[in-house]
Design a protein around this nucleic acid. Structure first.
Lengths: 236, 236
DNA sequence: CGTCATATACTTACGGTGTCAGTTAGTATA
DNA sequence: TATACTAACTGACACCGTAAGTATATGACG
């Protein structure tokens, strides 16, 4: 008996006296994307399925397709939404300080949703929405004030951007250790061929108890000093 | 008729006169991992399924489980295999040149298998196999010769490593454009709100026709100069 | 009121996924 | 020859993205 509507479920039923209307707010791309982001943050990237997002909104998976083209479109929306949450720090007098602030803000954003970086890595297409481009515009404007020749601004942006993304990726992915994997790393520390990998062995304590904030600043300093040296000595 | 063995298939049949033995080489973790790497390189990350890898080796998916614990283990193996293909460049007299060579080798490796970077981003666990650690050891040994104080070597490694990974990630993921997406980017160039994003608009030509090799060297130079400045002026 | 159009949510179904559990065949040893 | 072991295969389950079709609520217009 496939067609016995035992009850009209409890869906949008405008005239049902006993139970209240119980109208869910209407679906929208915004609500769907936010739900997907929530699921991603709380349960991981693998958990983000159309069915799971639908359940989050108490809706069947196929209903989502009224608002997003497909799953890839949904994930693109997630990236754009995260980008649009970028908090622009106030400009400082010194371009170096402005650059530092922007870099920190960028890192904070990526760390607030550690999986977007994997998402971007999977999508492999440039970000085109205006919200996603605004932080980039901000960064370019700062680098301009560093006195770079016209064609070099974008190079510097790529260099800084690369560093920030790469650093955070290594950080959140636990690529070279970190507090969260201490026990495991201490195990491998025991059976590490110390004579074959002496420098790694020597670095092990720094691998364990590293202050990521401090180390991030260190690399940032490297880039800024390098840029400074370059602008001082003319175009390299 | 589920149980009529019409033929013993053509599996390891030691005594079959008409058709030759046709013995496939025995399965092994190595062969499986290499097959997975091949599928990944040729058909993308999504294509790497147990069934697909099995088909590659003319074997059912479940047979792979005799040699790998699960899919994650297989993918870990892929990463380790790629790492073990790292080609150590000869050391130069100058540590700066050595660092440059190592950085290039690292980038070359990541670009040879552009999807391993996504893979590492997904795995989110440190690399522990000796092959995977050897390139890291090499990098650390170079940075030691730069005259860094003991505790700073690893920081510098993280900074350089972050830059390289991040740059290549942005490069292969087409995050900020590149030749492969020219047409698409030229489209968005037309409808870019130039007055709202002036610096991006000004950078568009560099976004289109950028020389990734050259830009990579630029950022590398930034880091090296920064490190130089730091070692010259004492511990920063 | 009736009726039609539109929008939006639901249902079904297909071929794919990872992998648990059970089966089979070929080989080495007792 | 009997036994044990290894390494392949088979079937099943619960999930996935999504094409195609169906049902219902709402608004427009008579």
């Amino acid at each position: 008996m496939p067609k016995t509507p035992t009850k009209p479920a409890s869906l949008p039923n405008s005239a049902d006296p006993d139970n209240p209307p119980e109208r869910r707010p209407p679906l929208s791309r915004e609500r769907i994307v936010r739900a997907a982001l929530r699921v991603m943050d709380e349960e991981g990237l693998e958990a983000v399925s159309m069915r799971r997002v639908g359940r989050e909104l108490r809706v069947e998976a196929m209903s989502l397709y009224n608002h997003v083209a497909d799953k890839e479109d949904l994930l693109t929306g997630v990236i754009e939404t995260v980008m649009s949450d970028f908090e622009f720090p106030p400009d400082a007098d010194d371009w170096k300080e402005s650059a530092r602030r922007a870099a920190r803000a960028w890192r904070d954003l990526l760390k607030a949703h550690p999986l977007v970086i994997t998402l971007m890595s999977e999508q492999r297409k440039p970000m085109t929405s205006i919200q996603a481009l605004r932080p980039m515009e901000h960064a370019l404007s700062i680098l301009r004030t560093a006195g770079l020749p016209d064609g070099e601004t974008f190079r510097a942006f790529r260099a800084f951007g690369g560093y920030i993304q790469g650093y955070v990726l290594a950080e959140v992915a636990n690529m070279f250790g970190g507090q969260e994997v201490d026990i495991h790393l201490e195990d491998i520390a025991r059976l590490l061929p110390t004579e074959e990998l002496p420098h790694i062995a020597a670095s092990l304590p720094h691998l364990f108890r590293c202050d990521f904030d401090e180390e991030f600043e260190y690399g940032l300093d490297l880039m800024i000093r390098g840029l400074e040296a370059k602008t001082a000595s003319g175009s390299g």
